[in-house]
Amino acid sequence: MNAFIRDVSFLSAMGVVVLTAAIVFVLGVAAAPAFKAFGWTFFVSDSWNPVKDVFGALPAIYGTLVTSFLALLFALPVGFGIAFFLVELSPPFLVKPLRVAIELLAGIPSIVFGFWGLFVLAPVFQKYIQPFLIDTLGSLPLIGPFFEGPAFGIGILTAGVVLAIMILPFLTAFLTEVFKTVSPLLKESAYALGATRWEVLKSIVTPSTRASIAGGIMLALGRALGETMAVTFVIGNFHRLKLSLLAPGTSISASIANEFNEATTDLHSASLLALGLILFVITFIVLACGKASVALLARRERR
């Protein structure tokens, strides 16, 4: 009986390894025709033409990277601020409810964020924010081209903002946990020397948790890269490379979600599967780096 239970649990654990390998293998085999047909040009070509059966992944990869980067750009300072507020500034009676609220909000399904983005955020963007950006920043040299074109409401920038709101609870909860791990002795010594809260954060808290913070950012980035529903609603699904952040674009997950069921040719579905494989590999690497740096810090602290 003991051996039986042990073996069953062993096989279940092996299941995780098998599942990971099987995803890469199955997606790889299914995507092979696309890689065979286009070779390396699949990664650098920006033409996506189901009619001519020519596919390139560049606009989707670009959209995935840029929306995720924008999401981090918006969410990171805000998350940092909230975490600092919770750990150092907040009156004690507020800390618990706020933390619970943030953790609960992290559980809201991503489709709700996407849905809200399409019906609430996109019209606001179209009416107020995008015209404002076009008028003010669009005519500037250098950064102008990023804010050109008509105001569609949906687009890369809107997708980035929705993603930012979506990863904010996760990022904040993570940073709060990290800030709390700093030994109070260290902080209080700094305060005793007359340091201000900002100085304690800058020269005590951040340096001693650098690896964890980097890890948390990577984990949040991994989530943003792979997010499907929050992006699909608001990105516009447009397979053309545009410099402007206000233009509609596409991401890997949005392309798959929008087109896979309606793929016209075998090469079309193989190309979408290839996108899926690329996405899996990219997020795998990012998440692995994140995990590694968090684990690194945990080991250093134990010493």
Partner: peptide
């Protein structure tokens, strides 16, 4: 397992 925990859910769908 930690990686699968936040892996893109759409990849599971394709798989």
């Amino acid at each position: 397992n930690d990686i699968l925990l936040s892996a893109p859910s759409i990849c599971f769908g394709l798989f």
